Simulated assay, not measured.
Amino acid sequence: MFDCKDGESKMRSYKVAIVGTGGIAAVHASNVERTGGRAELVAACDVDAARLEAFSDEHSIPGRFHSLTELLAQTKPDIVHLCTPPMMHIDQAIQCLEAGVHVLSEKPPALSLADFDRLNSAEIAGGAQFSCVFQHRFGDAAAAAKNLIGEADFGRPLVARCDTLWYRPDSYWDLPWRGSWNAEGGGPTMGHGIHQFDLLLHLLGPWQEVTAIATRQARKTSTEDLSAALVRFENGAVATVLNSLLSPRETSDIRIDTEFATIELSHLYGYSIQDWTITGAPGHEDPVRDAWESQPLEQGSGHSAQFLAMYDALDAGLPLPAGRDSARQTLELAAAIYASAFTGRAVQRGEIVPGHAFYGGMDGDGLGTRVLESTSLASTSPA
Results as ranks from 00 to 15, higher is better:
Ser67Asp: 12
Leu68Ile: 14
Leu68Tyr: 04
Leu68His: 02
Thr69Pro: 05
Glu70Trp: 11
Leu71Gly: 00
Leu71Lys: 01
Leu71His: 02
Leu72Met: 14
Ala73Pro: 08
Gln74Ala: 11
Thr75Pro: 04
Thr75Trp: 09
Lys76Asn: 10
Lys76Asp: 05
Lys76Phe: 03
Asp78Met: 05
Asp78Gly: 06
Asp78Arg: 04
Ile79Ala: 01
Ile79Pro: 01
Ile79Leu: 14
Val80Glu: 00
Val80Ile: 12
Val80Thr: 06
His81Arg: 04
Leu82Gln: 01
Leu82Thr: 03
Leu82Met: 04
Leu82Gly: 01
Thr84Tyr: 07
Met87Cys: 13
Met87Val: 14
Met87Lys: 15
His89Asp: 00
His89Gln: 07
Asp91Arg: 14
Asp91Lys: 13
Gln92Gly: 00
Ala93Pro: 04
Ile94Asn: 02
Gln95Glu: 12
Gln95His: 04
Gln95Met: 09
Cys96Asn: 05
Cys96Arg: 03
Cys96Val: 14
Leu97Ala: 06
Leu97Asp: 02
Leu97Lys: 03
Glu98Cys: 12
Glu98Ser: 11
Ala99Arg: 09
Ala99Trp: 06
His102Gly: 00
His102Val: 02
His102Pro: 02
Val103Ile: 04
Glu106Gln: 08
Lys107Ile: 04
Lys107Arg: 12
Pro108His: 13
Ala110Ser: 15
Leu111Tyr: 13
Leu113Gln: 05
Ala114Cys: 03
Ala114His: 06
Asp115Cys: 11
Phe116Pro: 01
Arg118Tyr: 09
Arg118Met: 13
Arg118Ala: 13
Leu119Met: 12
Ser121Gln: 14
Ala122Asp: 08
Glu123Ser: 11
Glu123Tyr: 09
Ile124Asn: 07
Gly126Lys: 07
Gln129Ala: 15
Gln129Cys: 11
Phe130Gln: 02
Ser131Phe: 02
Cys132Arg: 00
Val133Tyr: 03
Phe134Tyr: 12
Phe134Pro: 00
Phe134Val: 06
Phe134Lys: 07
His136Gln: 11
Arg137Asn: 07
Phe138Met: 06
Phe138Pro: 01
Phe138Arg: 00
Phe138His: 12
Gly139Lys: 07
Ala142Ser: 15
Ala143Tyr: 10
Ala144Glu: 04
Leu148Ser: 06
Leu148Lys: 06
Ile149Glu: 00
Ile149Ser: 00
Gly150Tyr: 03
Glu151His: 09
Ala152Ser: 10
Asp153His: 08
Gly155Ile: 11
Arg156Cys: 10
Val159Phe: 15
Ala160Thr: 13
Arg161Gln: 12
Arg161Phe: 14
Thr164Ile: 02
Leu165Lys: 05
Leu165Gly: 01
Tyr167His: 15
Arg168Thr: 12
Arg168His: 15
Ser171Asp: 13
Ser171Thr: 15
Trp173Val: 05
Trp173His: 11
Trp173Ser: 05
